[in-house]
Computed example of a mutant assay.
Amino acid sequence: MNVRPIRIAALDGLPHGFLGREGGVSEGIHAGLNVGLGSDDDRDAIRENRRRAVAAVAPGHKLVTLHQVHSSDAVAVTAPYPDDARPHADALVTDRPGLLLGILTADCVPVLFADAAAGVVGAAHAGWKGAITGVTDATLAEMEKLGADRARIVAAIGPCIARASYEVDEGFVRRFEADDPANERFFADGRRPGHAQFDIEAYVAHRLGAAGVGRVIALGEDTYAQPERFFSFRRATHRGETGYGRQISLIGLP
């Protein structure tokens, strides 16, 4: 099975893609295209999966990833980092051709950004902590430092856990409502008393629109509900598995 990136028409002309678990060499609970250096998968398999991911999206580009920590921190990058020296951050931007920015997820929200006219791209990992504390806002600010205009930016939201699969407790809901009472709209009644279903994709899309992003696109692909296509931390937890894989979302400049 080949690696099959999901591409966005609005990003045509830029190397990019949201990848799932198809086309990799990992086996067992990590079966497929697991690129997570933080997983307990075989290291040679992870390296081969990363090589395949780059080859499928932008052959010849240099992959740049982060040590993701669920923060709101974004960094500008000019060259790849050694695996053991990746910055602790959750978004990265560049104006350098030949680099391929990579964000890893397994239910959290991957966002790819581009101002093609300015020649600036970015990628963000928005788990709920990063989303509420402004990782997407930080990404936009770093892109603007490189000459981007947020009114021209296209932001594409990739596969993530959907509302139907994302149950949270009342304390979680209160945290978001305390930040902004209007956040109530992103929660639906839960299947169990004292719980709700959270639409993190819609929340991130709202944050991007409110920040003045010119165009926001959401794929609506549920990682939890599609085990053959995507890795999912929550699904692995519910199944009692001892680990989980990570998929990658990629964007660069030609």
Rank of each mutant, 00 (worst) to 15 (best):
R4Q: 11
I6V: 13
I8E: 01
I8Y: 09
A9F: 05
A9I: 03
A10F: 05
L11F: 10
L11H: 07
G13P: 06
P15H: 11
P15R: 05
G23H: 12
G24P: 07
G28D: 06
V35N: 08
D41L: 03
R43H: 01
D44P: 00
E48N: 01
E48M: 05
R51C: 05
A53L: 06
A55Q: 13
V57H: 11
P59E: 15
L63Q: 06
V64A: 06
Q68M: 14
Q68W: 03
S72M: 01
D73L: 13
A76W: 00
T78C: 01
A79M: 07
P82C: 00
D84Y: 06
A85D: 14
A89P: 07
A91W: 12
L92A: 05
T94R: 07
D95S: 14
L99P: 10
L99S: 08
T105G: 10
D107L: 03
D107I: 04
L112T: 10
F113H: 07
F113C: 04
A114I: 14
G119T: 07
V121Y: 13
G122K: 01
H125K: 13
A131V: 02
I132P: 02
I132S: 12
T139I: 02
L140E: 03
L140D: 00
A141D: 11
K145A: 15
A148G: 12
A151N: 14
R152A: 04
R152V: 05
A156V: 13
I157N: 06
P159T: 01
I161N: 11
R163V: 02
R163Y: 06
A164H: 09
G171L: 12
V173D: 09
F176C: 12
E177I: 15
D179L: 10
D180R: 11
P181Y: 13
N183L: 05
N183C: 08
R185V: 13
F186P: 05
R191L: 14
R191M: 06
R191T: 08
H195K: 14
Q197P: 00
F198G: 04
D199A: 10
E201D: 15
E201L: 04
V204I: 11
V204T: 02
A211C: 03
R215K: 08
R215L: 05
I217L: 15
D222N: 04
T223N: 09
Q226Y: 08
F231I: 13
T237C: 09
H238T: 04
G240S: 06
E241W: 06
Y244V: 11
Y244T: 11
S249K: 10
L250G: 11
G252D: 14
L253R: 03
L253K: 06
